[in-house]
């Protein structure tokens, strides 16, 4: 895994949502990279900018409000942000696919599921395969995700949530993309189905050699699937490292520590959960200095006034003033 080629590199990315009334700073200068066959987890609470990051990579930000102010997204060395809309259409679905959060609404209710998978294949049918060959591929994809191929003539409302998510996965994998973005793929599913779907994605990823960006707020999912983790807070990556760094490393950003403390521990008899105090700052009006400072138990005067120092040890990066002084 160490010597894999770099597939995706996000550099200094800044994205805002601009409306007449206000500017939402959704993603603020984030960097991360992903090698082939690798999985990176983007972790953080709702509103941290995870989905915005994903949509930016796909260039699917809402047209009227979404603005990419700065940075680059290098995919196989080419900057996706410089590509024209027509060029992007060849990337979407073929090289980079995305699985959206809610399988209930991600499928068109008026089209059979088979035709929705077929659509993907037809769009990127560079080899000019015949309709029969494509239909065969659809059958194969249905088998791959564990749905009997004869059900392809049915409509989305005839499937359960977990089944729908499998179909969404089949659509995403139809053209064997190099990169799969999974935007909270299991959040809308119930727990028993979550494990199934995760297992399926993991297997398929291994089989097809796909790289993956796993967006989630579930640290359990991260531990199970990811090689690398980027912890996001208020549009910034506050901690970045391998899964081992994040789960077992010594030094942590106070936010990461808070996230782990918020998970209830089975071995310990506790009256209450331990949430992180306070709320995510208003993204239209972010605090100066460290964005986490208003909620941070270790906050100092320095944290409030300047951007935090970067602490780095063997690729494990933490943006926090505590460690600069220590290490």
């Amino acid at each position: 895994m160490e010597d894999g080629k770099i597939l995706l590199e996000v550099k200094d990315l800044e994205v805002v949502y601009q409306t007449d009334e206000s500017t939402v700073h959704a993603v603020n200068h984030i960097d991360f990279s992903l090698k082939e066959r690798e999985t990176i987890g983007l972790v953080g609470e709702t509103g941290a900018g995870k989905t915005t990051t994903a949509l930016t990579i796909m260039r699917l930000l809402p047209e009227r409000t979404g603005r990419i102010l700065d940075g680059s997204v290098l995919f196989r060395g080419e900057n996706l942000l410089d590509k024209s809309e027509a060029e992007m259409r060849h990337v979407r679905g073929a090289d980079i696919s995305i699985i959206f959060q809610d399988p209930m609404t991600a499928l068109n209710p008026a089209i059979t599921v088979g035709n929705q998978v077929l659509e993907s294949l037809e769009i990127h049918n560079v080899e000019k395969k015949s309709k029969q060959e494509l239909e065969k591929r659809v059958d194969a994809l249905f088998n791959l995700v564990g749905i009997p191929a004869e059900r392809k003539k049915e409509y989305p409302h005839q499937f359960s949530g977990g089944m729908k998510q499998r179909i969404v996965i089949a659509i995403a994998l139809a053209c064997q993309p190099a990169l799969l973005i999974a935007d909270e793929p299991t959040t809308a599913l119930d727990v028993t189905i979550q494990a199934q779907v995760l297992k399926l994605m993991e297997n398929l990823k291994e089989e097809l050699g796909t790289s993956m960006i796993m967006i989630t707020h579930d640290l359990g999912v991260v531990a199970e699937t990811c090689d690398k983790v980027a912890v996001m807070y208020a549009g910034e990556i506050v901690e970045y490292g391998t899964t081992e760094d994040i789960f077992t490393g010594e030094a942590h950003h106070p936010y990461t520590t808070g996230l782990f403390n918020a998970i209830p521990n089975l071995d310990e008899k506790a009256e209450r959960l331990h949430p992180i105090d306070g709320l995510m700052p208003d993204p239209t009006n972010l605090p100066e200095g460290c964005k986490f400072s208003p909620r941070c138990p270790y906050c100092t005067e320095e944290c409030r006034s300047r951007t935090p120092y970067r602490y780095e040890k063997n690729g494990h990066r933490i943006f926090c003033n505590r460690f600069e002084k220590e290490g």
Partner: peptide
């Protein structure tokens, strides 16, 4: 969401609008 799914497939905008 399904319109976004169609766009994410790389579908042309005109087909996204009329078909989906």
């Amino acid at each position: 969401d399904y319109v976004r799914t169609a766009r994410a497939k790389g579908q042309k905008e005109s087909i996204v609008i009329f078909r989906h």
